[in-house]
């Protein structure tokens, strides 16, 4: 009995020393359907708390993260575009143009890789990159901290979240990640169909059938990506810094390979491709139908099919109808 009490006391002490969450700042419950995969391990280590998420959202929308206070994370990651935007390539401070298309932010808690090339494996390590990149915010973490640490609203939120008002890089990264982990899109028409709450129309159902035949081998699982990296022979980014996944792995097998993007909310995230080379969903399908560029490491699915995914005009209409069932109107208007 004494031992049990001792252990309990220890546990209580330990948890008290590290107040990730407490009665005042509880873990928040994330609404995830049972057909979704488990969280990745980093989410478990940085579980969103009530104030952590409020703080993260505030930071995400704070323009003081950029050198001239002109843009915040949300300036490129716009809720109405599933936290992407409509530019072909990202536009940062002073109108500087980045290398790639802004990726949407959704269902991050289930992902193993981030960014087009999978350079980041842990979401907490991502926020620093746009802060210091010249074509993005062109600032530094100390510059950001100096700008925000005397803000009384922040002092209140840091205390509520972490126990004191100290603004540290790690706390900033963790809070932003906590907020992003809550951006879960799981309430599209497709989800309602999965939950027997709705039915596909005839054209959507035909589109789903085409999807299963011709798209699902890569855009698999309820996340609509198998999280692999593939060279699908898309037009190549003329920027000389672009090598796709090979930039990370230095492996020729990954040359111009990119992460298979999720198709959730794809209706809201035009243009498409790693540097926005396709203005519409239709143009992506036309390109696959017409034939892609050859490459030594072209994906076998395309290599074995004359570099094409043949689609009739009718099939394209049907596919687009299905893809629109992945739109989650509640997600794009989401505010905490």
């Amino acid at each position: 009995m004494l031992i049990v009490c001792g252990v309990l006391l220890c546990l209580w002490c330990c948890s008290k020393n590290k107040p990730d969450a407490d009665d005042d700042n509880p873990y928040i419950k994330l609404p995830i359907p049972d057909y979704f995969p488990d969280f990745n391990t980093y989410v478990v280590a940085n579980r969103p708390t009530k104030y952590g998420v409020i703080l993260g959202e505030r930071l995400f929308n704070d323009k003081r993260f950029s050198v001239d206070n002109s843009i915040s994370c949300a300036s490129c990651h716009k809720p109405e575009n599933a936290f992407a935007d409509n530019n072909t390539k990202a536009i940062g401070v002073y109108g500087r143009v980045g290398l790639r298309n802004v990726p949407p932010i959704q269902n991050m808690a289930f992902m193993k890789f981030y960014n087009w090339d999978g350079s980041i494996l842990q979401l907490e390590k991502q926020p620093l990159i746009p802060i210091i990149t010249k074509e993005e915010m062109n600032s530094s973490i100390v510059e950001v901290i100096n700008k925000i640490q005397n803000d009384t609203d922040y002092q209140h939120l840091f205390r509520k979240t972490y126990g004191d008002t100290s603004v540290t890089p790690d706390r900033i990264y963790k809070s932003i990640a906590q907020y992003l982990y809550t951006l879960i899109s799981a309430n599209s028409k497709y989800d309602k169909v999965m939950r027997d709450e709705a039915m596909f129309t005839a054209i959507e159902a035909r589109g789903y059938h085409v999807f299963q035949q011709k798209c699902e081998s890569c855009h698999s699982t309820v996340l609509f990506t198998d999280q692999s990296f593939r060279n699908v022979g898309f037009p190549i980014n003329p920027n000389e810094n672009e090598t796709g996944r090979a930039r990370v792995t230095k492996d020729m097998k990954d040359f111009m390979s990119f992460r298979v993007p999720s198709l959730r909310n794809v209706e809201y995230t035009a243009p498409y491709g790693s540097f926005g080379q396709f203005p519409t969903l239709r143009s992506v399908l036309d390109y696959f139908d017409g034939g892609v560029l050859d490459a030594e490491n072209l994906d076998p699915f395309l290599k074995n099919n004359n570099r094409r995914i043949p689609l009739t005009e009718q099939e394209k209409e049907e596919l687009i109808a299905f893809l629109k069932t992945l739109s989650d109107p509640g997600f794009i208007t989401k505010t905490q």
Binding site: E242, A246, K250, F255, E296
Partner: peptide, 19 residues
């Protein structure tokens, strides 16, 4: 250039040529 073996500018050296 932009071919598989071109290495003089960051495009290719940053892939496999860098090492």
């Amino acid at each position: 250039g932009t071919g598989m073996d071109d290495n003089a500018t960051p495009n290719r050296h940053t892939s496999v040529q860098m090492m």
